[in-house]
Amino acid sequence: MQRKAWAIYLKPEKKDEYKQLHANAWPGILKQITACNIRNYSIFLREPENILFGIYEYHGTDIEADMKRMADDPETQKWWALTDPCQSAFESAAPGEWWVPLEEVFHHD
């Protein structure tokens, strides 16, 4: 099992829309997340900075293949077409990077 954490900005004017989308996440999206071996997935919001922080556990054996399968899923692409305009990447993001990975510096079970 791997823990992964990511962050991105939430556009202030899109906060309510983003929260509403996730309060009513599509069943197909939830099914796809599970099919791609992601468990214990949460997104947190830090205000007033409007930073989204996502964390999940990956329980598969090939994260690159599972993330590609998710990205290739038509329903996921429709979902991202709604959620991506609510977000903006950090200035420090690498070219092509959207959510930026975070380094785990401490964990305690």
Rank of each mutant, 00 (worst) to 15 (best):
P95S: 06
E104D: 04
T76N: 13
W98E: 10
P85V: 06
P12V: 03
W79C: 02
W79M: 07
E13D: 05
D16K: 12
A35P: 01
D66S: 07
I8H: 02
E91I: 07
I33W: 01
A25N: 11
D66E: 09
A81Y: 09
L10A: 08
S88H: 12
H107F: 14
W26K: 12
S88T: 15
I8P: 04
C36F: 00
N37D: 12
Y58V: 04
P74D: 04
K19A: 07
D109I: 03
I38K: 05
T34K: 12
H108C: 09
I33R: 06
F53E: 08
A93M: 09
I43N: 04
N40Q: 13
A81T: 08
A5E: 00
W26A: 14
A94H: 13
A65P: 03
P74S: 10
L102N: 07
W6V: 04
K4R: 15
T76G: 00
N37M: 04
L82G: 10
I55Q: 14
D62W: 08
P85Y: 03
G28N: 05
S42N: 15
P74W: 02
P27T: 01
P27W: 00
P12Y: 05
W99F: 11
D62N: 11
D109W: 08
D109Y: 02
W6Q: 06
E49V: 03
I51P: 10
L82T: 13
F106Q: 13
E64H: 08
D66T: 06
V105Y: 09
S92T: 14
A93C: 14
Y9V: 00
L21M: 15
H22Q: 09
P12L: 05
Y9Q: 09
L30K: 11
S42I: 12
L102R: 08
W99G: 05
L102D: 09
G28F: 01
Q2D: 14
P101S: 10
D16C: 02
D73N: 15
L102S: 11
T83D: 09
L10P: 07
P101L: 02
A7N: 00
G96Y: 11
I63Q: 14
P74R: 03
E47D: 02
R39P: 00
R69C: 04
L21D: 06
C36E: 00
N40W: 06
I8S: 01
H59R: 11
D84W: 06
G54C: 13
Y58Q: 06
L10T: 02
D62M: 03
D62F: 02
E64D: 10
E17D: 07
R46L: 15
K11Q: 10
Y41H: 12
K11M: 01
H107E: 14
L30H: 02
P101N: 02
R69V: 02
N40T: 06
E47N: 05
A35G: 05
K68D: 12
K31F: 01
M70Q: 13
Q32W: 00
S92Q: 13
I29N: 01
A94D: 14
R39F: 00
H107I: 04
K15R: 14
L102W: 06
H108Q: 11
M70G: 12
Y56V: 00
D72V: 04
V100S: 13
